[in-house]
Design a binder for these strands. Structure first.
Length: 392
RNA sequence: GGCCCGGUGGCAGAGUGGUCAUGCAGAGGACUGCAAAUCCUCGUACGUCGGUUCGAUUCCGGCCCGGGCCUCCA
């Protein structure tokens, strides 16, 4: 499942700045997000609940927390009392002392403890709000994630993902709310936190003007190249975006597609064993770089293999390994040739060149090669005849 | 300032106490009418200074550099 937080103060402010209704802003943003994830080859979640549609769940959860005396009402707010949760800080490795020592934000006067955080906050007349036992207001911090995941998955569930920047306070607070509300020791059994993407070595930020959107990238190259690049580093590591990095990713992925194209003469076997080079790597904390290396190992084997049976096996394994990573999903020829509107003209020239070669008129043959080369088209004379692809 | 993560060959990027990552780029060779692709071979890689060890890129500590978080931002 994938939660969508479609109500928070940032959204309220942005909608106000745009002079548009909140739902217009959130609908547009969500739609764009869906387009991007689809283009990157992400699988769709089974459920994608929205916070605004689950406010009653959150209110019930907050009531539970108050009943258990781990939350309290103060000046129209409801706050979670962090000292009530002894293991608070375990995920992020922060002790209470660390937090007090590092605090640099003023503490709201209605908090009983500096670390307490908001579960519910009052809304003014212009702000969106829902009726609650504490008056008209809106959910505070991160209660939506706790409420929705408990509702759809139960507590504890297996894996919780998110960016490394969310570890504290977002995930820490989710844990506190959920474990207290459900009386469990764990909220999620495993946490996967992904590293950041930087641009040319610097953190992406609007103020630096080095902001690159997925849509920007996809204007320049196929989503699969971007995906291949991202999977080329372990999820926990930071990744630096640059045009050079994209070119390298394209080159690497092209090699795999060339190998598949070379396997064009055989059908993928239907009784090949799973590609353990890839599977084993993924089983090891989603080691996608090693999984991709596994793909290259298979490609190397395939490029050397001569027996049809072996080639059929390797083709299957390559495709299966790729599928596990969401890669190699395109038709290889299509991938390598791209736009095929001029395919007939190209083929005519290839035919003419082969006739010239047969007549040992190499001057004419080379002239045709040069002519196509100038258009970015590379010819390859193989045992099965001449094929072409676009360069770069 | 506090807490945490990382610094690997030209580039990207895994990993390990003592044989190999892998890819891109580069060099040489095989193959090819030419070319491309492919295959083979190659480059004294592990920030720095110490320590532990028979042996450290891998463990420990100091230092330098980079990044992240530090509470009503999800």
């Amino acid at each position: 499942m994938r939660n969508i937080t479609d109500i928070d103060d940032k959204i309220i402010d942005q909608a106000k700045a745009n002079g548009e209704p909140i739902t217009e802003l959130t609908e547009r943003t969500i739609e764009r997000f869906h387009q991007d994830t689809a283009a990157l080859g992400c699988l769709e979640p089974d459920v994608e609940p929205r916070a605004t549609e689950h406010v009653p769940l959150m209110i019930r959860m907050i009531e539970t927390l108050i009943r258990q005396s781990v939350a309290y009402e103060a000046e129209g707010h409801v706050l979670f009392h962090v000292p009530a949760m002894p293991s608070y800080g375990r995920l992020s490795g922060r002790s209470r002392d660390d937090q007090i020592a590092g605090a640099r934000v003023e503490v709201a006067p209605y908090k009983r403890d500096a670390a307490d955080f908001v579960l519910w906050k009052p809304s003014t007349a212009e702000q969106p709000g829902w009726d609650s036992p504490w008056g008209r207001g809106r959910p505070g911090w991160h209660i939506e994630c706790s409420a929705m995941s408990a509702h759809y998955l139960g507590v504890p569930f297996d894996i919780h993902g998110g960016g490394i920047d969310l570890v504290f306070p977002h995930h820490e607070n989710e844990i506190a709310q959920s474990c207290c509300a459900h009386g469990t020791a764990d909220f999620a059994r495993y946490w996967l936190h992904n590293g950041f993407i930087t641009v040319d070595g610097e953190k992406m930020s609007k103020s630096l003007g080095n902001f690159v959107t997925v849509a920007d990238v996809l204007d320049e190259l196929p989503g699969e190249v971007f995906r291949f690049w991202m999977l080329g580093a372990h999820y926990r590591q930071p990744l630096d975006y640059s045009e050079g990095a994209m070119a390298q990713a394209k080159a690497g992925l092209d090699r795999l597609y060339r190998t598949l194209e070379n396997l064009d003469d055989v059908a993928a076997s239907d009784q090949a064993p799973p590609p353990m080079e890839v599977v084993g790597a993924l089983l090891d904390d989603l080691n996608t770089p090693r999984a991709i290396a596994g793909l290259h190992l298979l490609a190397n084997e395939a490029n050397k293999a001569t027996r049809p049976q072996e080639r059929a096996r390797l083709k299957r394994q390559l495709l299966d390994g790729g599928r596990l990573l969401g890669l190699l999903t395109q038709d290889p020829r299509q991938w390598l040739q791209g736009d095929t509107t001029d395919a007939q003209a190209i083929q005519a020239l290839i035919d003419e060149r082969n006739a010239a070669r047969a007549a040992r008129n190499f001057a004419r043959a080379d002239a045709i090669r040069d002519e196509l080369k100038a258009k970015g088209i590379v010819l390859e004379d193989g045992p099965q005849g001449t094929t072409w692809r676009r360069e770069g």
